[in-house]
Design a protein around this nucleic acid. Sequence first.
RNA 1: GGCGACAUAGCCAAGUGGUAAGGCAGAGGACUGCAAAUCCUCCAUCCCCGGUUCGAAUCCGGGUGUCGCCUCCA
Length: 468
Amino acid sequence: MAVTIYNTLSRSKEEFKPGAPPLVTFYVCGPTVYDYIHIGNARVFIVFDVIRRYLEYRGYEVKFIQNYTDIDDKMIKRANEQGIKVSELADRFIKAFEEDVAALHVRPADINPKATEHIPQIIELVERLLQNGYAYISEGDVYYDTAKFPEYGRLTKQKQDELLAGARVEPGEKKRSPLDFVLWKQKKEGEPAWESPWGEGRPGWHIECSAMSMHYMNDILDIHAGGTDLIFPHHENEIAQTWGAEKRPLARYWMHAGYLNIEEQKMSKSLGNVLTVRNLLEEHNPLDLRFLILSAHYRSPLNFNAELVVQSRAGRLRLQEMLVNLLAVFDEAGQSSGEQEQKLRSDLEETKNRFVEAMDDDFNTADAIGVLFDLARNCNIYLKEAHPYNSQLLDEVIQFFRQVNDILDIADISVPESLDKEIAEMITRRDQARAEKDFATADQIRDELQSRGIILEDTPHGTRWKRK
RNA sequence: GGCGACAUAGCCAAGUGGUAAGGCAGAGGACUGCAAAUCCUCCAUCCCCGGUUCGAAUCCGGGUGUCGCCUCCA
């Protein structure tokens, strides 16, 4: 059995064969740091975070790179609007990005290269493209000559003439073809600029990813990923650049995460429906957002609204509760083994297999989560019917779930914080009242606690509590 | 105009030739002092029309609808 990945390049699922296993080089296009990230951005980062973790679970050593685009038109425009330097803007939103993404339990990349810190590598790449005849200088700008690269359009599945048919031609173009794209932009007044063989200027958007991935990986990337909208022109251009310089592909597998829509519509500033992670986290648990995103396949479009978050929360808590319940009875478990144990053990084995099968199949998290629900039910049945429990078996289930949670990161299994003394006393008082069949008092205390966000559960093993 | 994706129950969502996973919501039941949690039961023939096949949600053709890319965009 092997991991299978849907490769945008071939539009089909392929067996995953990295160039130098167990190493996997994985580059995800990162944010342009001119604003807070929105939930659509978050989908991409969450999805590839999980894929990265799963590959590690499967024994690969993943080298994970995610860039920061800290110089481009949007950056300059925004910095000017705010009357600050581009670098200040970048610093501010890189920090915000790191905070938001950490809140969503997305693990930091191994390397976060910034475009502005790789100007020499970018210049060198542009020079090589010029030397190799894949680029030309036009009035101080340097452009990629797409006509020189017959493969241009392969990722997009369009021929050059088809792309040309839809291309927008602007007056005063300095390009030979509308498909050509800028590698180096001549400085305009008030813009940050760097010295180059072509005068002062700055890099075009697409060149940084090629330059930095080549600089840090120095070989074909195993996986290059991003949002669907990066297929054209961004990734198409990256492929062209790397080929022009190295005569080799940029990456083996191209992965693209589907859109996240708001009320069936794409998020956009003009529609005013952009939901930032920052705002959403004020109202929602980050794990609920994660769970919702992972409950659909990463390539499918995913609709998003607050109701869906609430709906998926209920399901997520079901899984979380299962684990909490297992942990709660673990200390009292013994050695018993019988039919119930056999049943659960075989359920567990089946679950493990099905989970890996689902994830191996192009990271089908939706299917994988479905498998976990089946395990949850079987565990609950065991907890209800077996008694006394088998501690080793419980441990195996707990370990499995912890492993899964290390990949998906959807359950909060941190040890509950100790209760306030006052609340603990209230629970004790209620237990006494219940023992004396003074249910009016007991219910009053329960209501009081509920208004403070504490839910009580009376189990055969005593009263448990949890936060709402 | 070119290219592409998708259409599965009230909602979310797997399944890509062998007779519809799972979750949420809902109904009934068990458990409970009552709850909560949990368990049991119930709840779809897969947008439409043709075709291929012993057999199709799954393949092919034709519709309809939604969305996306072709311009910055995750």
